[in-house]
Structures are given as C-alpha cells and as structure tokens.
C-alpha cells in the first residue's frame, strides 16, 4: 500500500456550464506506484487535463477520493492543497511558464520561496543542485530569453525537482519542442525515472508515450486502456540514431505522427 504514490477511487468531475452539467471525468480508478513512469494519453476532450489538474491538487474532484503519498486530499482547503503542491508535486508545463527577466537560478528557487522552513542559503544550494541535475550548471544566471526551448524546458524540470517531490506531473512537456529536443527532454525524464523519480506524463503523441513504462489511455472521461509498455524505447538511443542533418529540418514544432 505504501509504495502507492497516487491512488484514485471512482473519481468524477463535473463542470457546470449554465444549466448544463458537463462530466469531464466519469469514474476513474487509478493508482501509480513509486518509480513508475506513466503516460496519460487521450484525444482532446478525453479528460486528461482535468485528471492532471486533480492529480496536481489544482482542482478538486466532484466525487471520489484522491490520496497522494498516503494522504487523502478530500477534506483539504485551498491553503492545505497549496502546501501539498509545494511539498509533494513538481509541475512541468507545455509552455515552460518561466518568469521572464528572471535568471534560471531564481526561476528554480521559486517553489522553495513558499516553504518557510527553507533558508535562503539552502534554497540557493538546492536550486544549483537541481540545475546541475538537468545539465545546466553553466547557465544559472541566464535569463529565459537567452536560452533555447529545450534549455528552458530543462530549467522548468529543475524547478519541478527542486522541492524533492514524490511525483513529477508533466503536461505535454514536449508539445512545443522539435523531435530532437523532445528526445533530449525524454532522455532526461528517463534518467530521472531510473534514479527513482515517479513521473506522470500527459501527452497525445504515441511515440512519446512509447518511451514510458506504462500507458493509461483515456476516452470520454473513462480509462479505456491501462497497460504496461511492452518494451519501452530508450530516448538516448533514439537521439543518437537521429540523422545529424535533421537538425535544420526539424527546427519547427512537429505536426506529424
């Protein structure tokens, strides 16, 4: 039981649009164990963003229970949920969401600012360690506009790691990146996962999902399939296999697959 980082029981979420009640999630049962690398796939409107918002404690379910790291979030108020986000969850967004004109290091420090138990010295040290873990130790004082898309996303991953979360939630984290950079970022996620980090990765791209260890496919607010990936690909190998010339062609965000 205790190795379950996330456990969701009969979760529903309905939104009220005027008189209409839209049911985005219609009964989800899901548990994620420590060390898993789960891809949550589904078409637009399948409810994957809603599920991720609930898993990320940004939203509360209409019905059903959600336990993270053994703690039920059912009775929590806004401030308690904020503390859960601050201590137990790392977010990676599609559009990076870095603060402009703020150095990489200060961007990474951000979550720790909201944890009064951490001194400014410890904050700095942990942010430096997190940036080093994503291979950006020489870019700490760069501003986001001085970094490439892949580097910005790695700063965002460092920010997700800095608070030592029990799970990293990634929302289309490769959605704005080209194939090569996507593989670089996925290689980083695979490294983190190999180091024991639990990751839930929302994506609509099957080839990215194929790099995870488990796939959960949503349709119309229900889990359609939940299965282990038979032979997860290795992003580092795929990266090495990419023709060197692809660099120039693949600079635009990919639209195929």
């Amino acid at each position: 039981m205790d190795d379950k980082i996330i456990s969701v029981n009969n979760l529903t979420r309905a939104f009220r649009l005027g008189d209409l009640s839209v049911r985005a999630l219609r009964g989800i049962d899901l548990s994620i164990a420590a060390g898993e690398f789960v891809a949550i796939r589904g078409a637009s409107g399948s409810g994957k963003s809603t599920l991720l918002n609930i898993l990320g404690c940004l939203d509360k379910p209409t019905e059903g229970d959600y336990r993270i790291d053994g703690v039920s979030t059912r009775a929590m108020n806004k401030n308690e949920l904020a503390d859960i986000r601050n201590r137990k969850i790392g977010f990676v967004f599609q559009s990076y969401n870095l603060l402009t004109r703020t150095s990489a290091l200060e961007n990474v420090e951000l979550p720790l600012l909201y944890n009064p138990a951490i001194s400014s010295r410890e904050r700095r040290e942990r942010a430096q360690r997190a940036l080093a873990a994503v291979g950006l130790e020489d870019r700490m004082s760069h501003m986001p506009n001085q970094l490439s898309g892949g580097q910005q996303q790695r700063v965002a991953i460092a920010r997700a790691l800095v608070n030592d979360p029990v799970i990293v939630l990634a929302d289309e984290a490769t959605g704005n990146l080209d194939t090569r950079t996507s593989y670089e970022v996925m290689a980083l996620f695979q490294d983190l996962n190999a180091g024991g980090m639990t990751i839930a990765f929302v994506t609509h791209e099957p080839d990215i999902a194929a790099l995870c260890s488990r796939q959960v496919i949503l349709r119309d607010g229900r889990i359609m399939r939940d299965e282990a990936v038979a032979a997860p690909g290795n992003a580092a190998h795929l990266l090495a296999a990419l023709p060197a010339t692809e660099d120039s062609i693949e600079s635009a965000p990919q639209t195929d697959h």
Binding site: G56, L58, K78, N79, A82, D83, R85, N86, R87, F91, F93, N97, L99, L110, P111, Y114, N115, R159, N163
Partner: peptide, 16 residues
Amino acid sequence: TREIGLRMAVGGKGRH
C-alpha cells in the same frame, strides 16, 4: 496572470 497561476501551482497561497 500566468505568473500568478505559476506561483500558485508551485505552492503560493492566496495570501502570498
């Protein structure tokens, strides 16, 4: 607004 959203997502409370 996005900055506010981000700050909240990483644990910033209303009062912060």
